[in-house]
Design a protein around this nucleic acid. Sequence first.
DNA 1: ATATTTCACTTGCAATATGCAAGCAAGTTA
DNA 2: TAACTTGCTTGCATATTGCAAGTGAAATAT
Lengths: 140, 140
Amino acid sequence: MAPSTEPRRSDCPISFALEIFGDRWTLIVLRDLMLKSRQRYRELLEGDEGIATNVLAERLKRLEQRKLITKKRDPDDARQFIYLPTELAVTLVPMLVEMIVWGIRTGDKDAGSEFVARFETERDTLISELQAKVRKDAGL
Amino acid sequence: MAPSTEPRRSDCPISFALEIFGDRWTLIVLRDLMLKSRQRYRELLEGDEGIATNVLAERLKRLEQRKLITKKRDPDDARQFIYLPTELAVTLVPMLVEMIVWGIRTGDKDAGSEFVARFETERDTLISELQAKVRKDAGL
DNA sequence: ATATTTCACTTGCAATATGCAAGCAAGTTA
DNA sequence: TAACTTGCTTGCATATTGCAAGTGAAATAT
């Protein structure tokens, strides 16, 4: 990934978004932080996709620089850090939901059908509830 | 990019989506094909971001394999090919719109404010109109 | 107290992907 | 028929990723 100090490729908002999460791992990390309620490095490493330690470390650094997450020491164990999504990350939920629905419909017709059903009947409520849950987990 | 013949990393729909367009270029190409009405290799090369020729060739190949685009000869000039989005690509429009809105709000407060305004008042209509335009351009 | 384990990384290195410039074959234009 | 355009491919330098091993600080066990 390009460091976040580089100039923008263009002034297109899609291009801007891709500079932040146009790679194989950044959105996986945000998914785990927001939708799977993982908060620690160790937990993030245990995801199904098997992110490498150096890649995870670099993505966390960039997400912090981009103000999509915050990093705090765990008060109960000074070895550990707690990574939490920010309010900016919460604004990504609608896009993530669209991506999830597209992925289910396109790749995984069977799994996730109830998520899609709920999306089709009450998209806005579904998104609001997910965002509320993320905020609650993150103490926002 | 990993070739599209590789096994899935996991059964998560986000992960599945990222295997298809989790990189710096794939969605840029789809943006140009769908939202900027570009159809030829030469036109796609001329985008603001400056994609390399070999990268564009590889992405077009993968998009065709994934059935997101079709490739046809130009009947008026047999040197040229015409790349068109498929109906499957049209289903990506809602996600692209969310990404555009997020990019405008997050990176480019000034530019694109009327797109965001329309999104806020009539999201569904905006998306339907964009999809209709893509279908029309592509002859779907 | 000391040893061991856990945690969050960092480092080294091979494999892969990207960027850039040049080349090429088929088709079109002068 | 010579020059040009188009859609690529190729070669090569650089950047990114994946994997395994290592490090230092803090916690836990002995």
